[in-house]
């Protein structure tokens, strides 16, 4: 399986609301296990962050304080307070502490728009939380997630976990 196959999936035929529900549950779990995130975000936790992962077919709108993640088709950009745009690899590398957010910004791999202070607060809060996406998914889905994550990481080259970083 190639990374291109993984990353250029067609637009989801399923209801965005269903995907949003699953992602919201993941977001709420992360907030529960890492309460410092909302503390560090402070008032910026109420902002709506548009996550534009350039190599996936949908846009994500994250509302941290509300524990809500909504999914939109690329043709329907929702109103948002702050935006972050970059590749899936850039997002995951930053989340797992492999790449520095400012360095990604310097190189143009990540761009930001809207409320710069909110973006900065989110970056700092997530960086301090030392999130491991695989562990967060495993907390919902079970231990089998580790095996799938390792396999996907090997196939795609994406950083899906803090293990080995």
């Amino acid at each position: 399986m190639t990374r291109a196959f993984l990353l250029h999936l067609p637009p989801p035929p399923f209801a965005p609301a269903l995907l949003g529900k699953g992602l919201s549950a993941l977001l709420q779990g992360i907030a529960r296990r890492h309460p410092s995130i909302l503390v560090r975000l402070g008032a910026y936790g109420g902002a709506d962050f548009l996550l534009d992962v350039t190599d996936v077919p949908v846009l994500l709108l994250m509302s941290p304080a509300a524990g809500r993640m909504r999914v939109f088709r690329r043709s329907a950009v929702p109103a948002h307070g702050a935006g972050i745009r970059g590749s899936l690899a850039a997002f995951l590398s930053m989340l797992h502490g492999v790449e520095d957010g400012d360095a990604l910004f310097f190189s143009g791999a990540l761009t930001i728009s809207g409320d710069t202070a909110a973006v900065l607060a989110l970056r700092n809060a997530l960086d301090d939380a030392e999130i491991d996406l695989t562990e967060e998914l495993a907390a919902h889905g079970g231990a089998w997630v580790h095996g799938l994550s390792d396999w996907l990481a090997r196939q795609s080259g994406l950083v899906l976990s803090r293990r080995g970083t």
């Binding site: 930053m94 502490g97 492999v98 790449e99 520095d100 957010g101 400012d102 360095a103 970056r123 960086d127 301090d128 030392e130």
Partner: peptide, 10 residues
Amino acid sequence: RQRSRAYVAQ
């Protein structure tokens, strides 16, 4: 101090 833990470590 405004940089990430990745910057600090490297």
